[in-house]
Computed example of a mutant assay.
Amino acid sequence: MQQQFSATDAALSGFRLVREHLKTVGVWAVLMTIASLIVSIATIKLAGPQMAAMMELSAEPSTDPQATLKAMEGMGPLFLFSALYSLVIYSILLAGVNRLVLRPHDSAGAHLRLGADELRQAAVLVLVNLILLAAYFGLVIVAGVGIGIAVAVGGSAAGVLLGLLLGLGVLAAMIFLAVRLSFAGALTFDTGKVSIRDSWALTKGRFWPLLGSYFVAMVLAFVVYALLLVIIAVIGATLGGGISAMADAFNPDMSSLATFFTPAGIVRTLFSGTLSILVLLIVFAPAPTIYAQLRGRDVSETFG
């Protein structure tokens, strides 16, 4: 008989982690705020003019591809910096989430480290994303061939209909693959070795409850994100700039330090760490929580 888990409890595990580990979450939020501030300044310094050009192009009804490519010139260092930053930050934070759930007693340094566990999480992130990317391009190529055949045989109407169906099929296949690989991080952290294939085996026969849990978590994360963004916008507008300043919270102007650090921009920066960490916990806590339940672990120390 398969070990069972509560999809609803798992979906709410991020909120429970915040409640039971409030001090740890606070430390993470402060560190993430500092990191976000550094990245914002680096982004403006590396590609402020290009960001301004991109914002102008995005405001136009139709964009010339040549103009877009020209605006992106010189943004290579920024893309490289962003990729490395994301890999390092998410490796550390995802290892921290797994540590909170699977090793709650290992609390030194607010459950954050920079060692072998984090390196393995980085490897998992790279491998899983490469698998998803390869699968996506493979499915798109197959879909493109199918649409081409349908247009040749049945005309444009048949091509459009088949294109819609195949598009939905590609989306469904990508969701299925992502769910089946969702235990890779927890398995790797728990076993101490990079483990992708074992996630496929452990999620077998559990796709729908897993999908339900992850979907609820995503919806909750979106609600929290939207509410906090509105609060940030209102506070920023109150401090200066009026209603027009509220747009800064949703679409910050990163063309220069002066345009970025408006009253609304400062408020957004101060709250950015809290916002990021809350969304991270809500979205990523369910997978290790479900994994722990399937392994028969006692998570009372984690969730009280």
Rank of each mutant, 00 (worst) to 15 (best):
L139P: 06
G146V: 00
S156I: 01
S156G: 03
Y136L: 14
A122Y: 15
V126T: 05
V145C: 11
I147A: 06
G154C: 00
G138H: 13
G138I: 10
A150W: 07
A134I: 06
A143H: 07
N129F: 12
A150T: 01
L132P: 03
V153C: 05
I149W: 05
I141E: 07
V140I: 13
V126L: 14
Q121G: 10
L119F: 15
A134R: 12
L125H: 05
L119R: 15
Q121C: 13
G148M: 06
E118S: 02
V128C: 08
A135G: 08
I149N: 08
A122S: 13
F137M: 10
L139A: 03
L132K: 03
A158Y: 04
V140K: 12
I131A: 12
V151D: 04
F137E: 06
I141H: 04
N129S: 08
A135K: 02
V128P: 04
A157Y: 01
I131S: 06
G148R: 00
A157V: 08
A150F: 09
A157F: 02
A150G: 01
L132C: 02
A152I: 04
L119V: 14
G138C: 12
L133P: 03
L133V: 06
V153E: 01
L132I: 03
G154N: 06
L133T: 11
G138R: 13
L127K: 14
L133I: 07
G154T: 07
R120M: 14
A152G: 11
G155Y: 09
Y136C: 08
G154S: 00
A150Q: 07
G159I: 07
I147Y: 09
A157E: 04
A122P: 08
A157D: 02
A150C: 06
V153T: 11
V151S: 00
S156Q: 09
V160M: 12
A150L: 00
A150I: 02
G146N: 07
V128Q: 04
V145K: 09
L125G: 05
Q121H: 08
G154P: 04
L139E: 00
I141D: 01
G144R: 08
L125A: 09
N129R: 12
Q121S: 14
G146W: 00
A158P: 00
S156Y: 09
A158D: 01
L133F: 10
L127A: 12
R120E: 06
A134P: 03
A135D: 05
L125P: 05
Y136Q: 14
V160F: 05
F137P: 07
A158N: 03
Q121F: 13
A158M: 11
G159A: 03
A122F: 15
A122T: 04
A152H: 09
Q121R: 11
A134K: 01
A134M: 14
Q121V: 15
A134S: 09
V153K: 05
V126A: 07
I149K: 10
V145E: 05
V128L: 13
N129K: 06
